[in-house]
Computed example of a mutant assay.
Amino acid sequence: MFGNLRMVVPLKQIRPISVIMAVLTTLFVLLPTQSATLASGRTTGLSEKHLYKLDINWPQFPENFTGEVFGVAVDSVTGTVYIAQRGESVPKILKFTEQGYFLQAWNTSTIEMPHGIFATNVFPETSLWVTDVGNGKYGHTIKQYSPSGKLIQILGTPGISGSSLNPLQFDQPAEVFVSRKREIYIVDGDGGLNNRLIKLEKGFGIDWIKGEKGDKPSQFYIPHSVTEDNVGRIWVADRGNKRLQVFDAETGEWIGAWTSCFKGDGPSSVRLTQDNKYLIVAQLNINRVMFLSAPPIGDIGVCHIVDTIQLSDDVKPHLVDVSHKTGAIYIAEIGAQQAQKFVPNDRK
């Protein structure tokens, strides 16, 4: 009866009286809304058994979220989940285990307004990369930290926005992705001067750069998220143009774009599932997370929606990340001021 319910209540609304009562309350309150969704035909062609389900026990103590949650990153090797949040007098980074236990809060003054975060664990180095869109003396930069919050290095020119490549400057860099080869992909900017995709070599030299403001191939309007698939393609959430653009990781050559899946809202985040079968795409303004079939090597074809998670109104999913150990998906939600965990539906 309730197999297709995908509306999700923010965790802060679930009191720790009884997990069973929370689930029953969620189903009872949201049943009319979901029935309307089914009647509208929005789930036509989607799988009857959904790919992921909400883990209502994560985190163990949601009151640790004290600000607006903008980003989430998973270190799959250590089982650590990092949360980036904004707000006055709140720690900018929170650390949890994948089981939901709170570990640490960073009260660093070197992060002004975190936007995107990415965790790397390439032996012997474990670190966290944070994009900072603030306008103060540390803003418009990408910073690398140790797991305990020690600042390791800064990419960009702190406190100065710009488009220069020498010295390297950013203007509101949205997200960073570090490949297994330690190559760095950056989407710059979240509404600033720049609309570009930059690839840095392992030694931080510029390998190639694509983009300017526009809606033609290799142009962007608010490039917001970036990831690499398992066949050497770079996927960019071109949010303002309501499309995903795809590039060759080695050469930067434009491969294609998907637009037909984004009529209602542009993509704000893109990642791949643990098994590389699906692209996970968040749509902030319509409170939805989609799963798109990941195309095989070669022509990307057209996008095909396999499944969706329809979140409650005003949850506003911003960025997502995936545990490559457990397959769990973590969603940073600005409106709900929390992060939520979804697990593959064939697991408890």
Rank of each mutant, 00 (worst) to 15 (best):
L5I: 11
V9N: 05
L11D: 08
Q13P: 04
I14T: 11
P16D: 14
S18T: 09
M21Y: 05
T25A: 12
T25V: 02
T26G: 11
L27M: 12
P32C: 12
Q34A: 10
S35N: 15
A39Q: 15
A39G: 11
G41M: 07
R42Q: 11
T44P: 01
E48F: 13
K49V: 12
P59C: 09
F61S: 03
E63V: 09
E63S: 11
F65E: 01
F70M: 03
S76T: 10
V77N: 03
G79Y: 06
T80D: 03
Y82L: 04
I83G: 01
Q85N: 04
R86Y: 00
S89R: 06
K92H: 13
W106A: 00
T108A: 02
T110V: 14
M113W: 07
P114N: 10
G116M: 11
N121P: 12
V122G: 01
F123M: 11
S127L: 01
S127T: 09
L128F: 13
W129G: 07
V130W: 01
T131D: 05
G139H: 02
H140Y: 06
T141A: 10
K143G: 13
Q144V: 11
Y145V: 07
S146D: 12
I154T: 15
I154P: 00
G156E: 08
P158K: 02
S163P: 02
S163W: 06
L168K: 01
Q169V: 01
S179K: 03
I184L: 08
Y185N: 04
D190F: 13
G191F: 03
G191S: 13
I198K: 02
L200I: 02
K202P: 00
G203Q: 12
G203T: 08
I209V: 15
G214C: 13
D215G: 07
Q219K: 15
I222V: 12
S225H: 10
V226L: 10
T227S: 09
N230P: 02
G232M: 06
L244N: 07
L244S: 10
G252M: 05
A257K: 15
S260F: 01
S260C: 01
D265M: 03
S268W: 15
S268R: 15
V270G: 07
R271E: 03
L272N: 02
D275G: 05
D275C: 04
K277V: 02
Y278L: 12
I280M: 13
L284I: 11
L284N: 07
L284W: 11
M290A: 09
S293H: 12
I297G: 14
I300M: 03
V302D: 14
H304A: 11
I305Y: 03
V306M: 09
V306L: 12
T308W: 04
I309C: 04
Q310T: 14
S312F: 12
L319P: 06
S323R: 00
H324F: 15
K325N: 14
E333G: 05
G335P: 02
A336L: 09
Q338R: 08
K341G: 03
